[in-house]
Computed example of a mutant assay.
Amino acid sequence: MRLRRSVIALMAVLGLALVSACNSGDDGGNEAGDGLQKVSYLTSFNTFGREAYAYVALEKGYFKDAGFDVKITPGSGTVDVMKLVAGGQADYGIGDFTATAITLANQKLPVTTVGMIHQRSMAAIMSLEGLGITKPEDLPGKTIGDQPGSTNTVMFPVYAKAVGIDPKTVTFLPSPPPGLPALLASGKVQGIGQFVVGQPLIEKADSKHRKAVTLPYGDKLPDLYGNAIITRTDLAKDHPDQVKKFTTALLKGLQDTYDDPAAAAETLKKYVPDTDVAVATKELQIMRNYIKPQGFTGPLGDVTQERVQKVISLLQESNAIKTPLKPEDVVTLSLAPKS
């Protein structure tokens, strides 16, 4: 009996090993039944209009043409995306580059960035007319609602130094992201952490129909990148061709989104039925200026060592990071898009 059990156990182990071997491709992932490689992808945050480009790449078959069967899952902010990618729960994700650099300076997660979605940071403080904020100098003494650990909160000390105010004079009230528009509209806070593309959503949530007041970090810190494409360091090192193919397919979706924001918003609604197409379209129209800012001449997704070093130096000067950090610690330049 004992021998029979041992044989059965051995057969089970061999069976699992065989299944694993059949599922493991040379490019570091599992294959779907149609021969496509299964890949998991996390949006930066939820499924707002700003995330439409991934769904465009999915809808238009760019991922499939590159050999991937992609599952898109809503992300919950840069730090969480980094941790999920580092832990193997996702292969790729989107996160703010500055927040990524700050996080990697404080904890060594096995992730790297391989291209930029935005050539300029979209982080901002947003308010409404009549709440006492019209310019950066109005921020001291005010209360800002935001999710702890969000890009806007993490980057605020850097922005505060750039505009000449003491970050300690501004209070950040921990608040769940879905409730931020209503919290601002109620006047319980004078501002919220928000990406600039959140303007149409904020204005729609205000029953008094006030105009949004936006203080973009990128206006004072133009060297800061916005969202970046994140993957695990082992994928970047061991399977560079896969990473390049995935990035190329995703950026095709981004280019189409740039070219036709309204069509991209309609595509998003197909996959996320509760999408407000008008709001999503306005978000994407605003985002165009961050994908390709005025004067930008590089390839879509461009990232350079010189600029990454500028970002690191800026963060060090602002005491946002206090440990040594090199460009290669945060980005794999060999996999970044080339002209």
Score class of each variant (00 low, 15 high):
residue 270 K to F: 00
residue 272 V to G: 00
residue 297 T to W: 07
residue 280 A to M: 03
residue 293 P to G: 04
residue 268 L to F: 05
residue 266 E to C: 01
residue 271 Y to A: 04
residue 290 Y to M: 14
residue 267 T to D: 03
residue 269 K to N: 05
residue 272 V to D: 01
residue 269 K to C: 02
residue 288 R to W: 14
residue 267 T to G: 02
residue 284 L to T: 02
residue 278 A to N: 14
residue 300 L to F: 06
residue 280 A to I: 10
residue 286 I to C: 01
residue 271 Y to T: 07
residue 289 N to T: 06
residue 271 Y to G: 05
residue 270 K to D: 02
residue 281 T to I: 03
residue 287 M to S: 10
residue 275 T to M: 06
residue 291 I to L: 06
residue 298 G to T: 03
residue 282 K to V: 06
residue 298 G to M: 09
residue 285 Q to F: 07
residue 272 V to H: 01
residue 272 V to W: 01
residue 267 T to M: 08
residue 283 E to T: 10
residue 291 I to M: 11
residue 278 A to R: 07
residue 287 M to E: 13
residue 278 A to M: 03
residue 299 P to D: 05
residue 296 F to A: 10
residue 294 Q to H: 12
residue 294 Q to M: 14
residue 295 G to C: 10
residue 268 L to Q: 08
residue 290 Y to A: 12
residue 269 K to V: 07
residue 285 Q to T: 11
residue 290 Y to T: 06
residue 270 K to W: 01
residue 288 R to L: 03
residue 284 L to Q: 12
residue 294 Q to N: 09
residue 284 L to S: 02
residue 297 T to D: 15
residue 297 T to M: 14
residue 287 M to Y: 04
residue 293 P to K: 12
residue 287 M to I: 07
residue 276 D to C: 12
residue 288 R to V: 04
residue 291 I to H: 05
residue 298 G to V: 04
residue 282 K to E: 11
residue 267 T to V: 13
residue 282 K to Q: 09
residue 274 D to C: 02
residue 277 V to G: 10
residue 275 T to I: 06
residue 287 M to K: 09
residue 292 K to A: 04
residue 293 P to H: 10
residue 299 P to A: 14
residue 272 V to L: 03
residue 275 T to C: 12
residue 296 F to V: 05
residue 292 K to P: 06
residue 287 M to W: 06
residue 281 T to G: 14
residue 271 Y to H: 14
residue 300 L to C: 12
residue 280 A to P: 08
residue 297 T to R: 15
residue 293 P to M: 11
residue 281 T to C: 09
residue 276 D to H: 09
residue 297 T to F: 07
residue 300 L to R: 06
residue 299 P to L: 13
residue 290 Y to F: 14
residue 288 R to H: 14
residue 267 T to N: 06
residue 294 Q to Y: 15
residue 296 F to R: 15
residue 282 K to S: 08
residue 288 R to G: 07
residue 273 P to M: 05
residue 275 T to W: 03
residue 288 R to N: 10
residue 284 L to K: 05
residue 296 F to K: 14
residue 266 E to L: 07
residue 284 L to N: 15
residue 299 P to C: 10
residue 285 Q to K: 13
residue 297 T to N: 15
